[in-house]
């Protein structure tokens, strides 16, 4: 039986929780064999695969809820602080390069101090640095230097979530 190109790497990346990005040659192969991978993961492990236009990732029954919650908290506070700083937060997340020092400044002066201090991934500069390593490993950010990174297209999973969350709240407010 012939498998798609990069098959082993695709499976290995996805199974270690990585997002496969459009800039990665593996993505083309994955996209071309979309049907195969959907049934491969479904039949072999019972996992769903989400293949979007510019990234792909796996979903399992047991989800990394704590990490997902921490990432949401991170995006939420970052968006709030960027907006407070007079910036277009969405454009910044999409295109800007972030310096960890600047992020430390945002997080240490945030009015969400209590939430930040009670979160093990965000409570101080050292924890945040480790958190960035996790995000980098999962391809949610891409390191561009020792203390610099940009967000990859995977940010959309979380930004879309925020928009859906707001819609739910807005609908509830209208119905209420």
């Amino acid at each position: 039986m012939e498998f798609p190109r990069y098959h082993k790497d695709i499976v290995s990346d996805l199974m270690s929780g990585k997002f496969i990005l459009a800039s990665d040659p593996k993505f083309v192969s994955l996209k071309e064999s979309e049907e195969f991978y959907s049934s491969f993961f479904k039949e072999s492990f019972g996992y769903e695969i989400e293949i979007k236009t510019d990234f792909a990732y796996l979903l399992s029954y047991e989800t990394g809820e704590q990490l997902s919650r921490d990432i949401c908290l991170f995006f939420a506070i970052l968006s709030f602080e960027l907006d407070k700083d007079g910036k277009n937060f969405l454009e910044e997340i999409q295109y800007a390069e972030f310096e960890t020092e600047k992020l430390d400044e945002y997080f240490s002066n945030s009015s969400y101090a209590e939430l930040i201090l009670n979160n093990n991934q965000m409570k101080d500069a050292f924890s945040r640095k480790q958190f960035y390593t996790t995000l980098n490993r999962r391809n949610i950010i891409e390191k561009t230097g020792e203390n610099k990174f940009t967000f990859t297209q995977a940010y959309k999973v979380f930004i879309d979530f925020a928009a859906d969350f707001a819609k739910g709240k807005l609908n509830a407010a209208i119905e209420g």
């Binding site: 939420a76 968006s79 969405l90 969400y112 707001a166 807005l170």
Partner: peptide, 12 residues
Amino acid sequence: ESIILTGWIEFL
């Protein structure tokens, strides 16, 4: 105003 920011503020 941004729907995304509304979502985040409500989430927080």
